[in-house]
Nucleic acid binder design. Structure first.
Length: 343
DNA sequence: CCCGGCCGAAAGATTACCTCA
DNA sequence: CTTGAGGTAATCTTTCGGCCG
């Protein structure tokens, strides 16, 4: 698996995929994992603009984090809301349907006519039932049920069973928090989208949802989780990097220690002028991560781990002793002063 | 200009489901 | 067949920034 690490690309255009863009399976071969360390704030100007422009669209989604399919699929779909039964939000660990006190395979009672407004209003945002009850989005021509969805899968039978289970979900609207596995195509497409932009504005969300035959909420959740996974991976990478840094520093410290002892031994035995030379140490500016050579009166004060000297204010102790790999390596010299000092 | 309330979006944390060894 | 681990969709909570009165 290839690990692609993109070190910041904030200037990347915030475009959106064309509506009929096909999933490029060739490109997605090395899907791997594209990380951006750049500062890519949650609200770029354009994003903000888009957000504002589509505020009305989004606001139609009803209560927070609840997607209303009728808001985007037009009037062809009727929104049926079930009478809210007091569903305890999961009590047992291995939540089977029996545990929850209802059968997920049983059809729910027919919705009361014109229950739309009342039920929607009464629907608690924390009710686990609300999202499922709106799960009518995939009714009709669901791609998820297509056999090619498992393309390249190991087992057509398993996939078929999976798909049939999805179909049954669509049938009974699955009261339980039924987990729908996204197809490989859907995942690949989402992955491609994520590569282009790791956040979505409402329009993009709707477009993606339509294209993938998912609910916008699902797309949103997928992006949330994807960002979380990315961050987790980044943390792991950082951790590995810091570990290596630590090892390197430890080794360097050991080497310098040894060198110091040799110098002391030399001092005691011969050449009285030798120690007149100041020791040279490499220190790193914590803010800009540049490395500078500094001279000190006594080398031991710099390299001895048990030194009683307090850390310099100019170079406070940092948990990140070494700079990450930078695109433009440089070092502090007098000819190239610290950026902040230049001003 | 400052303040507080409201709202939406995103992150973070957690839960629950599913698959597989 | 059972079980535990891992992956991940889904949910809930917290945080943050913008807007408005």
């Amino acid at each position: 698996m290839e690990l692609g690490l993109s070190l910041g690309d904030p200037s990347r255009p915030f475009g959106f995929l064309p509506k009929n863009r096909e999933v490029n399976n060739n490109n997605s071969q090395g899907l791997g994992f594209c990380m951006s360390l750049g500062i890519n704030g949650s609200g770029t100007g354009r994003q903000q603009l888009e957000r504002e422009k589509s505020t009305t669209d989004e606001s139609q989604e009803g209560s927070r984090n609840r997607d209303d399919p009728t808001a985007y699929i037009g009037s062809t779909l009727q929104l049926d809301l079930l009478p809210l039964s007091p569903l305890p939000r999961h009590t047992s660990s291995h939540g089977s349907s029996e545990v929850r006190g209802f059968d997920v395979n049983r059809l729910p009672p027919p919705p009361p006519p014109a229950a739309e407004d009342g039920a929607a209003a009464a629907s608690s945002p924390n009710s686990g039932a609300s999202s499922f009850q709106m799960d009518l989005w995939s009714v009709g021509g669901s791609k998820r049920g297509s056999p090619e969805a498992g393309g390249g899968g190991n087992d057509g039978g398993v996939e078929a069973e999976r798909e049939s289970s999805r179909a049954s979900d669509d049938d009974d609207n699955g009261i339980a928090r039924k987990k729908l596995r996204l197809s490989k195509e859907q995942s690949a497409y989402l992955e491609e989208s994520f590569k282009e932009h790791n956040t979505l504005n409402p329009k993009q969300k709707l477009a993606l949802a339509k294209q993938l035959n998912l609910r916008p909420r699902q797309v949103e959740v997928w992006f949330q989780n994807r960002r979380a996974r990315t961050k987790l991976k980044q943390t792991e990478v950082d951790c590995e990097y810091l570990k290596r840094c630590c090892e390197t520093l430890t080794e360097e410290n050991r080497r310098l220690h040894k060198e110091l002892q040799e110098l002391r031994a030399l001092k005691n035995t011969s050449n009285p002028f030798y120690m007149q030379l100041p020791a040279t140490t490499l220190t790193m500016c914590p803010s800009c991560e540049r490395v500078a050579a500094t001279t000190t009166a006594t080398a031991s004060s710099m390299v001895t781990p048990n030194s009683t000297n307090p850390p310099s204010k100019a170079t406070p102790a940092s948990p990140f002793p070494l700079a990450r790999p930078r695109l433009y390596p440089f070092s502090h010299t007098q000819s190239q002063p610290h950026p902040s000092a230049a001003s």
